[in-house]
Design a protein around this nucleic acid. Structure first.
Lengths: 355, 355
DNA sequence: ATGAAAGCGCTAACAC
DNA sequence: GTGTTAGCGCTTTCAT
């Protein structure tokens, strides 16, 4: 294989200057005659402009970065597929990173992207506002997906973060919200509030009183929505969290079922948590839905394979990714605005009347 | 945010030449005194070398490309996680593309990577040898994962490809294999032959005679292994294929069950096919394992959630990705050799004695 | 409409 | 051991 043709080769072969070639290929002005000749020569030499040269000149890499916590979580797989679909149709590259839900790894990956001069980023954030400062300071255009970063508020007020988050995205008075960097950052999220509320009402309608929430990292809005939907008062023992890994999700679910055998329904905040709930229930000989009803956030293909098939709150993962990619690519043209996508309660077989 | 510091800034501030800075930062020779000063200044200015400049100079992008058919397929998610883990520990970026199993999209993505001067690539190939010619001609280092590209043999001999593939990777005499470009390309694959053989023997041991294979694209080696394990003679009606989408997998599974109600067991060549088999069986009121036994290739978290839990042939997706990334990064140092990773039959509840 | 020329930030000769 | 310099391939003034 021999050296790839450069713009200089094309210019020489076409008997024009390099600037002309550049103009023709990027749709600038040129006489029809010249244009035609350049195009012909370029095709003949199988010329492909090198992104390297262009990027250096423009001091930025095209395309976008994508940061997700874990690609074996089907929801993030769907999200990534959406991003990739949009990027592909735009011919843009996507640099991918998996953070494992760890703010430190996230920070490192942000550093790597900065080094690559990737200045557009779609992220399902794991770290808090502080983790994201370097990205903003460097002038990155970032669009968050699924949820916003935690606000890194004083430790004595863990609930404020969620409440704040909720207000912002539910469109309450901005004046009521404290000023925050996150306010400026667009995000593509699902209507968590609506989804959770619908699920809780559905369970209530079946007679359930003691409903638990099994949450994971980054689900502040969902928890807040759950609290709002069931309470007050909220039975705090019925709100438990895993750290993101399958093991910790299982531990949380198992602990919940054992410490509160009186609960009759649980809402899992994501598919990994739902999986854990099914496993833990089976291990403890709890029958779904006879002994315990289950609603899971995320519709994933295997929800239908479960026995019984799982009732879920579906969110459009692929669309979310696609929209986020659109936003990040259009940034500069129009100021990105946050997007809230609808959720849908899909009733299958994992919920029954209170026993 | 202000302009990032360049190597020149560091050089000036440290009172040395740019070359010295470059040397210090890339571990070249420098006096301890100088080294220390440069490092201090660099840290002070928060200097990060721009990959753009380095890449252009070296006429290649660092890192690697990764091409998979579909990220919502959990197996590819696992594979990608492995690749990302290795890349992260090397501090290298990964440019991701999803082909949808379509050779044309694959070709386009290869073109995009070429344009980016990405010269290392890990791919679960969808196209045949011809699709891959441009990558090889451009001098890309490619490592295939999961399987090799189809050989694009004469149309009258569809089986030869599989047979050929099989020979190569099972380590049979290279002299017996036709010369082929693919021979030179390293790959990281699972021991399909062993996995399938074990599964078939297991089913045979349960008394099953009419065992079907439900395959997908790129599973030539698995089909070949299946044929070898059950036959001859092979009941060709019991070997059916989907095209890769969930819909087509379902159609194939459903068609199989309806056209051959006498079959008593099926081996699904991948998790999407397994999912389809479970769904189709349920739709047709076939009970697993009473009416039909099922073994699925791929261990995925939801296999355990199924009712009954699925007996699977586990392959180490994450390891495969990690190993592939290692190979592609070490290329140049040592000549990459193909790797075959072991599979394991995990017996759960989806197989029973022949009814 | 077109060409000449100046870099973008970096590394690798090459000279000292 | 260290500085100087010449580009890598491209876009973009600035003349013409």
């Amino acid at each position: 294989m021999e050296r790839r043709a450069t713009i200089k080769d094309v210019a020489e072969a076409a008997g024009v200057g390099v600037a002309t070639v550049s103009r023709v290929l990027s749709g600038g002005s040129a006489s029809p005659r010249t244009r035609e000749r350049v195009l012909a020569v370029a095709a003949q030499l199988d010329y492909r402009p090198s992104a390297l040269g262009r990027n250096l000149r423009q001091r930025r890499t095209g395309g976008m970065g994508l940061l997700v916590p874990d690609l074996t979580d089907t929801f993030y797989g769907q999200l990534a597929e959406g991003v990739l679909a949009c990027a592909r149709s735009a011919g843009e590259p996507v640099v991918l990173g998996s953070t494992g839900g760890d703010p430190e790894q996230e920070a490192e990956l942000i550093g790597m992207l900065l080094e690559q001069s990737v200045d557009r980023l779609i992220a399902v954030p794991s770290g808090d506002a502080e983790t994201w400062t370097p990205a903003f300071r460097a002038g990155m255009t970032v669009v968050f997906a699924d949820h916003l970063p935690a606000q890194a508020l004083p430790e004595d007020d863990p609930a404020a973060s969620a409440a704040n988050d909720l207000m912002l995205l539910d469109g309450l008075s901005p004046a009521a919200a404290p000023p925050s960097r996150s306010l400026d950052v667009p995000a593509v999220v699902a209507d968590d509030r609506g989804g959770i509320r619908t699920a809780v009402r559905y369970l209530r309608g079946l007679g359930h009183k003691r409903i638990a929430f099994l949450g994971g990292p980054g689900q502040e809005r969902r928890v807040a929505a759950f609290r709002a939907a069931v309470g007050p008062p909220v039975d705090e023992e019925l709100v438990v969290f895993g750290t993101g890994s399958r093991d910790s999700a299982y531990a949380a679910a198992s602990g919940l079922f054992q410490s509160r055998p009186d609960l009759t329904a649980v809402v899992a905040g994501g598919n990994v948590l739902g999986e854990a709930a099914v496993l833990a229930a089976r291990e403890l000989d709890l029958r779904v839905p006879r002994d315990v009803s289950l609603v899971m956030y995320d519709d994933v293909p295997w929800a239908e394979l479960c026995a019984p098939p799982l009732t879920v709150i579906a969110q459009p993962g692929r669309d979310m990714g696609y929209r986020a990619a659109e936003l990040v690519l259009r940034a500069g043209t129009r100021r990105p605005r946050s997007v809230v996508l609808p959720t849908e309660l899909i009733v299958r077989g994992s919920c029954g009347p209170r026993r």
